[in-house]
């Protein structure tokens, strides 16, 4: 793939759930190696964009291109092949309750890559160190972990197979400020150390300013503005201004 073509490209993507149009002709490019943060209020379709990229949802109209492939047109095997280059960090981590921390992180290594246990354990230890977890957690079940730890395990699981793209769904929501900051550092680390392309969905502006190379704002199913963190911070668009300053007054209705 050419180095200047985007890692992820959405072309006029529309999606409705029932009568509700969640995405309306969304165009979006994420360049290889950059971190793009999508901001917007809850329930405006931020996570829906991630699910389209991960191939969990198919667009009603438009195309979703990842690494030069049209996700919706791929067969299941081909999507799985593409997903090997992709890590997804879910909002509530979505760890498998019935499996241990080790089995969670090593899930794809053991099942898909047929890696022997000794080697998988080595990889898991390395990834846990990378996300700042001690390896005495290996045999615990997810229910025994705190929220912040789960998020880290979720991240370790996402990066276990050395992905080129990481999708983060609200990585800091529901965490205390210190843990949030640690997660932000991790996201920056992943970009620096692994050189991955990241797409982060959040409504935490502090986190957005910290990790983003570019920020795009979605409102009413459309991307209404995009730019560097500084550009977004000083944007004159009344919607963007209202959102980033967290103001009740402005064009966005409270309800």
């Amino acid at each position: 793939m050419e180095s200047n073509s985007p890692a992820i490209r959405l072309v006029k993507v529309s999606k409705s759930f029932g009568d509700r149009k969640v995405l309306d002709q969304v165009d979006l490019d994420v360049k290889a190696g950059e971190t793009l943060v999508i901001i917007g209020r809850s329930g405006v379709g931020k996570s829906t964009i991630l699910k389209h990229i991960a191939g969990l949802l198919a667009p009603d109209e438009g195309e979703v291109w990842v690494e030069g492939q049209d996700v919706a047109k791929l067969k299941e095997d081909e999507v799985n092949e593409l997903r090997k280059k992709m890590g997804v960090v879910f909002q509530y981590a979505a760890l498998f309750d019935s499996l241990t921390v080790y089995e969670n992180i090593a899930f794809r290594l053991l099942r898909d890559f047929k890696m022997p246990h000794a080697k998988a354990l080595e990889v898991v230890r390395r990834k846990m160190e990378l996300v700042g977890l001690k390896d005495d957690l290996l045999d615990l079940k997810p229910a025994q972990l705190s929220g912040g730890m789960r998020k880290r395990v979720g991240l370790a699981r996402a990066i276990a197979v050395e992905p080129e793209i990481i999708l983060y769904d609200e990585p800091t929501s529901g965490l205390d400020p210190v843990t949030s900051e640690a997660i932000n550092d991790l996201i920056l680390d992943m970009q620096k150390k692994l050189g991955v392309t990241s797409l982060v969905v959040t409504h935490d502006m502090h986190s957005a300013y910290k990790v983003a190379n570019r920020i795009a704002m979605i409102y009413d199913g459309k991307i209404i503005g995009a730019g560097t963190p500084d550009e977004i911070k000083s944007s004159r668009d009344p919607y963007i201004h209202q959102f980033v300053t967290g103001s009740v007054d402005g064009p966005m209705p409270i309800r």
Partner: peptide
Amino acid sequence: VTEQIDALYTLAAN
């Protein structure tokens, strides 16, 4: 409801 099914898909396990 806890997105573990979605997670299975993303980890290439149907």
